[in-house]
């Protein structure tokens, strides 16, 4: 009997092989994400370097003409950057107030049954493919706006911006709502017990406590807007120019990349390399924004 017990305590080979092997396999899975990042950086880097052998970084960053596909060729990225930021800015002006107001309503005012219905609807909105929003921008928003602004072109920054805004509203509202929900209930109770109204609790207690999370949601949404491709490709136009009139056609970085790839630029040419240079620019900007958002969001977890 003693012996039997002793035997049971020896290691079961199969059991311990799995226990040894699985963590290593799983680790490989996790490494795929590192591989992806390395792949992105390495991929962009190679061709970008080739590009900058022909165009100086200075000309690229400060040039005000972007005409890589037609003579006289010029490689100043500013028009694309400005186009991108114009659309993004319009999107944010439209989406931030709506997103944050919806979040406050959902987290501080809405009865449960309203929340149960509204949140899935916002998720549907979040899941609308961007090509669909592009369609909506081109065939609905622009014609409607043209009734108001008669100088508005078929392709314009305004409609694209509004639809990019529609795209980021659910993101802002759900992330901000999460941040506000993370504020402990006892803080709200403390304020209510002093006779604060709901609005005062929301703006003086919950909003400040959730502020870093809310700002992080703004930054993430901003970054998402910058990287958005299909809406702007379909509805903002393909005319890279420095033009702050939102009724005019512009071109964003992403739309330019699509234009080159769907055209006939051959591999190895400088036209082709511009895709990588612009892609690198896009990647760096969004990457930095994401890091900023993560750092800001990390702060609010440490409080209370």
């Amino acid at each position: 009997m003693m012996q039997e017990q002793g035997i049971e305590m020896f290691k079961d080979k199969r059991k311990s092989i799995m226990n040894w092997l699985m963590p290593k396999l799983l680790f490989l899975c996790a490494l795929v994400s590192i591989g992806t990042t390395v792949g992105i950086v390495w991929t962009l880097f190679g061709e970008t370097v080739a590009f900058f052998k022909q165009v100086t970084v200075f000309d690229f960053i400060t040039g005000t003409q972007w005409t890589p596909l037609i003579d006289p060729r010029s490689y100043g990225v500013l028009p694309l950057l400005l186009g991108t930021f114009q659309v993004t800015l319009i999107a944010c002006l439209f989406a931030f107030p709506i997103g944050i107001a919806s979040a406050i309503y959902l987290s501080e005012y809405a009865p449960n049954r309203v929340r149960k219905v509204v949140k899935p609807i916002l998720e549907v909105l979040a899941g609308i493919p961007t090509i669909v929003l592009g369609y909506f921008a081109l065939f609905f928003v622009t014609p409607q706006l043209q009734k108001i602004f008669d100088t508005m072109g078929i392709f314009n920054a305004l409609s694209a911006g509004i639809c990019v805004g529609i795209m980021i509203i659910p993101m802002i509202s759900s992330l901000s709502e999460d941040a506000m929900n993370a504020v402990p209930k006892k803080l709200r109770e403390g304020a209510f017990a002093l006779g604060a109204t709901r609005f005062e609790v929301a703006t003086q207690i919950v909003f400040p406590a959730a502020l870093s999370g809310i700002i992080a949601s703004f930054v993430l949404a901003f970054s998402r807007a910058i990287g958005e491709t299909m809406i702007v490709t379909v509805s903002a136009g393909a005319t890279p120019k420095i033009d702050i009139n939102p009724l005019d056609s512009i071109q964003t970085m992403t739309a330019y990349i699509v234009q080159v790839i769907t055209g006939d630029a051959a591999h190895g040419t400088i036209e082709y390399q511009t895709v990588y240079a612009v892609g690198m620019t896009l990647f760096i900007i969004t990457f930095l924004l994401n890091i900023v958002a993560l750092l800001i969001a990390r702060r609010y977890r440490e409080e209370y």
Partner: peptide, 23 residues
């Protein structure tokens, strides 16, 4: 790795396209 996954979630999809095209 954790940080990397969070940032990858924010990389524009068109950049994944460039990655796929090249690799």
């Amino acid at each position: 790795i954790q940080l990397n996954i969070r940032t990858l979630a924010g990389v524009p999809s068109i950049v994944y396209g460039i990655l796929g095209l090249t690799i």
